[in-house]
Structure formats: structure tokens, C-alpha cells
């Protein structure tokens, strides 16, 4: 029973991670690429971590895996938001989207805050 759930979570997590990589390769511009990569990759790795938590023995390992899931859940949106905000620039081509008139974030403003 546990082994069956583990097998399905393993395969599902690996396939969702593969889907994130395919989206990173195939989408037309940076923002849709990051949309594919950050969300579905974190879901796939979280499924793999749940599968690992079902197979290992001992409470300490399960606590570590819960911490890993929390860190991935926190880090993925933070890095995606920082990178997407940095990549917006005047004249920057984006698929089906207008470039902003002036940069939404500048070095002086970001070093002040």
C-alpha cells in the first residue's frame, strides 16, 4: 500500500519536473518561461520529498523532509519574483506584452529600501 503510493508519487513528481524543464525550453519569452519553471518544479520536488518521507524510517528524517518542503515552498516564489522584477526593462521585448515606459525598479531605489 505504502509502496504503491510511493511509486505513484515518484513517477508523478519526476514527470511534473520534466514538464517544468520542457516549459523552460519551449515558451517564447522570459516571463512565461519562469512561470513554467518555478511553479511546477517546486510541485514536482515536493511530491518527490513526500515519497521520500514515506520510505525512510525514523522521525528525524521526516522532520528534515518537512523542513526541506518548507524551504522550497518559500524560496521558489522569492527568487522568481526577484528575477522577473529585475528583468523588466524599457524596450525589453516580451511576447504579447508592452514594455514598461520606465524601469519599475532602479539601483538607487532598491539600495535605499
Amino acid at each position: 500500500m505504502i509502496n504503491g503510493i510511493t511509486i505513484s508519487f515518484l513517477l508523478l513528481g519526476a514527470l511534473i519536473t520534466l514538464l517544468a524543464a520542457v516549459g523552460l525550453l519551449r515558451f517564447p519569452d522570459l516571463f512565461s518561461r519562469m512561470h513554467a519553471a518555478s511553479k511546477s518544479a517546486s510541485l514536482g520536488v515536493i511530491l518527490l520529498a513526500v515519497a521520500a518521507a514515506m520510505q525512510i524510517d525514523g522521525v528525524i528524517g521526516v522532520v528534515k523532509i518537512v523542513l526541506i518542503i518548507g524551504f522550497i515552498f518559500l524560496k521558489s516564489p522569492v527568487s522568481a519574483q526577484a528575477l522577473a522584477r529585475a528583468a523588466q526593462a524599457p524596450g525589453e521585448p516580451a511576447y504579447n506584452m508592452k514594455a514598461p515606459e520606465e524601469p519599475p525598479i532602479s539601483a538607487e531605489k532598491s539600495s535605499e529600501t
Binding site: L24, M34, A41, V45, Q55, I56, I60, L83
Partner: peptide, 28 residues
């Protein structure tokens, strides 16, 4: 920026590989 996004995804994929290695060896 595309390369940085690819590096970010690569780190996540390696995390998944290490979790798989944890399952198959049992080493915590």
C-alpha cells in the same frame, strides 16, 4: 536572465535527484 532561470531550475532538479538517492540508499 534566461540562464539564471535555468540555473534555478537546475538546483531544484538536483534536489530531486538527491531525494531519490536518499530513498534508494536509505542514508539519511
Amino acid at each position: 536572465a534566461d540562464r539564471v532561470a535555468a540555473l534555478d531550475l537546475l538546483a531544484v532538479i538536483f534536489i530531486g535527484m538527491m531525494l531519490l538517492h536518499t530513498i534508494s540508499t536509505g542514508e539519511q
